[in-house]
Design a binder for these strands. Sequence first.
RNA 1: CGGGGCGUAGCGUAGCCUGGUAGCGCGCUUGGUUCGGGACCAAGAGGUCGGAGGUUCAAAUCCUCUCGCCCCGACCA
Length: 564
Amino acid sequence: MRWSKVFIPTLREAPADAEAPSHQFLLRAGYIRQVAAGVYAHLFLAQRSFLKINQIIREEMNRIGAQEFYLPALNPAELWKESGRWDQVDVIFKFKDRNQHDLCLGITHEEEMTNIARSELRSYRQLPQIWYQIQEKFRDEPRPKSGLLRLRQFIMKDSYSFDLDEAGLDVSYQKHVDAYHRIFERCGLRFLHVEAFSGMMGGKVSSEFTAPAEVGEDSIAVCDCGYAANFEKAQSRPAPVDDLPGDSPPEPFATPGKKTIDDLVKFTAESPARMIKTLDFFVESHPVVILLRGDHTMSETKLAMTLGTDVFRPATPEEAFALHGAHLGSLGPVGLKGVRIIADLALEGRKNLLAGANRDGEHLRNVTPSRDFQAEFADVRQVEEGDPCIQCGRPLRVTKAIELGHVFKLGRRYSEAMHATVLDEQGKEVTLVMGSYGIGVERILSAAAEQNHDKDGLFLPRPIAPFEVILTAANMDDAAVRAAAESLYDELLKHRVDALFDDRDERPGVKFKDADLVGVPFRITVGKRKIGQGLVELLERSTKQATDVKLPEVIPALRGRLGC
RNA sequence: CGGGGCGUAGCGUAGCCUGGUAGCGCGCUUGGUUCGGGACCAAGAGGUCGGAGGUUCAAAUCCUCUCGCCCCGACCA
């Protein structure tokens, strides 16, 4: 393409409402323009990138035997009511047609795909199936943000697997995990595959692929040994604590006015790791008492997992008083009757701890779990940066990351609700076992932009950059430069190099600045001084390393760098 | 949904407190000079100051309502 003929509206300054680097540069480089909050027009350069990204996705999905579909974004309400999500999910764009029928725009397509599966799949002989599409999704997000990072309309590659049993699902799931690794690898991203929570999608096992970046919304705990998990789900070994010896029974002591762990630490000079923190919650009308080590923080997500529901709330001070016979500050587990007590794993096997005495102004020492009170032990603690890795014991790091893709073992959540069954070998009706797998296409581009920019602009990975090379003719009015550039451009096209020829009648400075901005990984510069010696310049954008190359050698040199 | 900020030409902004014909830089058009890191000179085009209502002789400016956008938090398949 000749720059003089195409529309690449670069900006010298970033629009004031763009903050994230990917947002600023995609605007400045003329990739995108905003239409509304969380809604963007993809201009020429963006569309070229997306076509390349989609092609990579397609190739890798096809490679695992997935079949490409294209379902409508416009969905009748019936299916969503059947699965229960019409009322459960609040980001659905809902509206009525002229006949007052409820419709919505698809947020994802479990319902639609399951609907096809149930009406068409009859026999185990037809399994497994993997169906996918690259299609628009609509979500009425409470807070769209950061350019293409959180959109209300976005492109998703979503796929759905249908298997006869769990073993089959495991295979389909693993195929996706492998495909996703190849996709993100080929897109040139730095990424992590991490354990995750399934949230409202339903199902038990899920993991996500994330790209480390400052502006990411996910927090990821990572370790050098390869362990990586969503912060909400991450586990760690609690730092070991030496408990005091002895088997004395709990002994009350006065702690007037000491209400917090901090107060108690100052008052007793004991380590908070030797204290028990007591938190009361209610699940519907049932109280649940949560115990944690004094220096630990509870993870609401893990508690939700343990309780099997995310509908719970902290007890009011009055409710806590009714349960313990004491006010907040002196709550403890000893002597509680008929209440479910969940103790964090960090309290298992410990002895002689400090806890509230359930009498105002008093605490107990020598409290030993399982002797002085009974509790279920579960992991309800949020990890902290520096905690020993659950696998190898080295300190965990916490990093921000962009969620690129998420893979779920759904199980029978949708197939059961929508009666999607086939007959097995014995002629018995069997409910399909499903998986669902998503990739955010815009997020691949934004993550690449976040990971590959400097003060002057973008340098996208070659496979997803809108062009592979930009041919800059520094002086179009110089006959020798012009002739050399024109013939180089022809040669590049002949060699099927994806080239953008900056043939504009602009000053060299303007062209160099624009070339730096637009995210093309290589630049060939033809200038009037060097062309006299038969030389042109080959520059790698990411490092800005430039080398002078003899004119006939520049295309082989470039192709070598491009790996083709 | 809670908190904060902002809407003035394509982009960045001044003017608003203290009401009196809307200004600057970049970009754009034309002519000339220039030409390896966002040139210079000259002449131009371009704005219902987000919208509605009100106060006033007079509103970008004051008041009320409203719409939109951004950021933090909540939420997040």
